[in-house]
Design a protein around this nucleic acid. Structure first.
Lengths: 251, 251
DNA sequence: CGGGAGGTTGACAATCGTCAATCAGAGTGG
DNA sequence: CCACTCTGATTGACGATTGTCAACCTCCCG
């Protein structure tokens, strides 16, 4: 596996960074000039494991991944879902020792960037550092929303909320424009993301379907019938995603 | 209210920043030279409200505060607790529009630092920016642990975990060395932090007390009888706090 | 002394978890 | 092409952790 610097590859990352903090041409070039290693990751493969030393930051180029933690008892909590353009493991790599695992949800392509290179880049280009910091702050905002989701919402609302967030983020990442998408997770994974059991997730999805808020041609093929109604059922308000302009609805 | 630059006041913030990323003398001086407004905040007073424009970053000098969010239905979720030395509202102010509220838990003293001054400081001193970024990353790690706490742990474990985290953070902030402290929150606030109801928090505290894991001379005066046992009951592992050296226990 | 906030307790209800069986679909090998 | 198998989805019966409601208590403070 060799280190590459093909500037075209890191485009998704640059797009994400410029999304909120505009960067100059020089700065953009500096980002694209980061060294990286391309890697195809298989379904279910671990990118980082809890407690490991993280030496690289992982940029998602294709596919989906999750971040998760384990309790001592062995149950799993998924704390984030990641898709194209997202720097999955900034968190672990900057803090050196991983406090959670990152695992592929589907087969995908990732670029591994050495921790030191990212660190160096932000020191040489403070505005890039600022952009990455902002990105981390948005991640934090999403974490807070998830705390509220599992802490203060009932099963139906949690699931609806997750479906809304996923739909909107897919759209922003340029992975779908409409109200129909393929959920890349099993119901067990949905359960681990919402703090429920797989059985109850199933019941809840059925209930949402029965009420016409979603339709499913296959178990994971989500079709949002009425965005407004689903957003209401999910207590979903895109404010916490900190999108630049008003991009509140899919409808 | 006038803007001040008394360098002695921002010491707690500097300590926090240098805790993980060592700063040079020049950098330290730059931090201390930040302009700020001193403010005494009363019990229950709001520092920032959800959806407001945040123009300042708030540094806790004395007292405790919480960050919270509201569901549409009106229930509250506390997503973080803050104490001396912590930059409470970096999150809101850097993202401009607040996605959650910050409220004083006790009477306290805060320093309000203009958002622009912080932003400017990090651009002029990239290493300070790096330190603040790291701080934000640690905040993120704590958020993730909280997601797991409310998502995958039962009532007893959640409460025990919160009691452990609070004890350890008090110690790190230099606010207490021993296993005895005064919890600055009501049981209703404990409930909002753990995703439970006040009644069940009460039952759970009683149960922890009955089992000798804690003792309480008054309802909020927590005395940790056996740190190891409480940490075990709370599935508490300080890894996620990313403390510099081994500082795992209080015992 | 009165009022109020917060803490405590008990009875009962309900959301959600557990257990377990069955079903559906994809991939594999004969 | 057809068992065979495995993973994931679905469903039902039952149980339990936790929520709800409501009363009462305790302490602090004006």
């Amino acid at each position: 596996m060799q280190t590459l610097t093909d500037p075209s590859t890191l485009e998704p990352m640059l797009e994400k960074l410029c999304y909120r903090v505009p960067l100059s041409a020089t700065e953009r070039d500096a980002v694209l000039a980061l060294p990286f290693t391309l890697k195809t990751s298989e379904h279910n493969q671990f990118v980082v494991r809890e407690r490991e030393l993280a030496t690289h930051t992982c940029l998602m180029l294709a596919g989906f991944s999750i971040r998760s933690k384990l309790t001592a008892f062995g149950s799993r909590q998924i704390v984030a879902i990641h898709m194209k353009g997202e720097l999955v493991d900034l968190q672990n790599s900057m803090l050196k020792v991983a406090d959670h695992s990152v695992q592929m949800l589907t087969k995908g392509e990732v670029a591994l960037i050495p921790r030191e290179a990212v660190s160096q880049l932000t020191l040489e280009h403070p505005r890039i550092g600022h952009a990455m910091w902002t990105d981390t702050l948005v991640d934090g905002s999403i974490f807070r929303e998830w705390i509220m989701n599992v802490g203060r919402r009932d099963a139906r609302t949690r699931i609806a909320h997750l479906l809304c967030e996923f739909a909107l983020r897919l759209k922003i990442a340029g992975l779908g424009e409409n109200k129909q998408y393929e959920l890349p997770m099993t119901q067990e994974q949905l359960a681990d993301a919402t703090g429920l059991t797989p059985v109850h997730v199933n019941r809840t999805l059925k209930s949402l379907e029965a009420d016409g808020l979603i339709a499913r041609s296959s178990p994971r093929s989500i079709n949002i019938g009425d965005w407004r109604k689903l957003a209401e059922a999910g207590d979903f308000d895109s404010n916490y995603l900190h999108l630049p302009e008003a991009e509140p609805a899919l409808a």
